[in-house]
Computed example of a mutant assay.
Amino acid sequence: MGQELSGELTEQRIEELKNSTKFTAKEITEWYAKFKKDFPEGVITKDAFVSMYSQMFPNGDAKDFSLHIFRAYDADGNGVIDFSEFIQTLNISSKGSLEEKIRWAFKMYDVDGNGSVSKQEAIDMITSIYKMKGFGSAAAEQAEEAALNIFLKLDKDMDDNLSEMEFVSAAKNSSSISKLFKF
């Protein structure tokens, strides 16, 4: 990741992306053209990403949620989303298996990157979703209740942390959770 910050998409890079995604060379080239049209500098900055989400959710506060999504896209942690990171994430969301989508969601919920999701991380993530949807001042209270219910169902070893294995297993085995990832 991070190799295509502002340069053109080479045949070699197309081949690498074709081999690491389920996109054809033609699809990669088409997505690259759209990406460069929308982001001529070749990267999506944090501010631009937050602005995009804010426009998509004008009745709520999308800032916190968009920052969580941005962090998950920005695989190399350099503060921008380059085309490689964009296409890899698009690959998971549009062509990935249920498990790949769940693992990507886990990465988003694992805010500190320590390999587990704490109750507080779950509360913060759910609060950001509720704020984005315009729940207002009730968002934090509702998010805490939702997170506690999730932990009661998913935290099998009751250590107040969800490991990736607990998260993936529970999401795959829960029809209500797994249907969220089937898009």
Score class of each variant (00 low, 15 high):
Tyr73Gly: 05
Leu9Thr: 08
Asp157Leu: 11
Ser174Lys: 00
Glu41Cys: 11
Val168Gly: 00
Ala48Val: 10
Phe35Met: 05
Asn114His: 11
Ser66Glu: 03
Glu141Phe: 13
Asn91Thr: 05
Leu180Val: 07
Thr10Cys: 09
Ser97Phe: 02
Lys22Asp: 12
Asn19Leu: 13
Arg13Leu: 15
Gly60Val: 04
Ile81Leu: 09
Ala72Pro: 01
Ser93Cys: 14
Ile177Tyr: 00
Arg13Ser: 13
Asp64Ile: 05
Glu144Pro: 03
Ser54Val: 02
Asp38Val: 01
Glu27Met: 09
Arg71Asn: 14
Ala171Tyr: 00
Glu145Tyr: 08
Leu162Gly: 00
Met52Lys: 11
Asp112Ser: 08
Ala140Phe: 11
Lys182Asp: 12
Lys179Tyr: 00
Leu9Ala: 06
Ser6Lys: 12
Asp157Gly: 09
Ser6Pro: 04
Val111Ile: 14
Val168Lys: 02
Arg13Ala: 13
Glu30Ala: 13
Leu148Cys: 12
Lys26Cys: 09
Ser6Asp: 13
Val111Arg: 11
Ile129Met: 12
Met108Leu: 15
Met56Gly: 14
Phe23Asp: 01
Asp47Leu: 11
Asp47Gly: 12
Asp157Met: 10
Phe57Ala: 06
Asn173His: 09
Phe83Ala: 03
Arg71Ala: 14
Ala33Ser: 15
Phe167Tyr: 08
Thr45Val: 07
Ser169Val: 09
Trp104Gly: 00
Phe106Cys: 07
Asp159Lys: 14
Lys153Gln: 14
Ala48Ile: 06
Ser116Pro: 07
Ile129Gln: 08
Phe86Glu: 03
Ile129Ala: 05
Asn173Leu: 03
Ala143Gly: 08
Tyr73Trp: 12
Asp82Tyr: 02
Gly79Glu: 04
Asp38Met: 10
Asp112Ala: 07
Leu17Gly: 04
Ile14His: 05
Tyr130Asn: 07
Phe65Tyr: 11
Tyr109Gly: 02
Lys153Pro: 04
Leu180His: 07
Val111Trp: 02
Asp74Ser: 08
Ala171Ile: 00
Ala62Tyr: 02
Asp160Gln: 15
Ser174Asn: 10
Lys101Phe: 03
Leu162Ser: 01
Phe183Gly: 13
Ala147Cys: 06
Ser175Lys: 12
Ile129Thr: 09
Asp76Thr: 10
Glu85Pro: 05
Val117Trp: 00
Tyr73Val: 07
Thr21Asn: 08
Phe106Gly: 00
Phe49Gly: 01
Asp82Met: 05
Gly7Gln: 14
Leu180Tyr: 03
Ile129Ser: 04
Gly115Leu: 02
Tyr32His: 14
Ala33Gly: 13
Lys18Gln: 15
Ile123Asn: 06
Arg103Glu: 09
Asp155Phe: 10
Met165His: 14
Phe39Glu: 10
Ile102Leu: 03
Phe167Ile: 02
Tyr109Asn: 05
Glu11His: 12
Glu11Ser: 14
Ile87Gly: 01
Pro58Asn: 07
Thr45Arg: 10
Thr21Met: 09
Gln142Leu: 14
Asn78Thr: 08
Ala147Trp: 02
Glu164His: 06
Ala139Thr: 06
Gln12Phe: 13
Ser174Tyr: 00
Lys46Ser: 12
Tyr109Gln: 02
Glu8Pro: 10
Lys101His: 07
Phe167Gln: 01
Asp82Phe: 02
Gly96Asp: 00
Gln120Cys: 07
Phe151Ala: 04
Tyr130Ile: 01
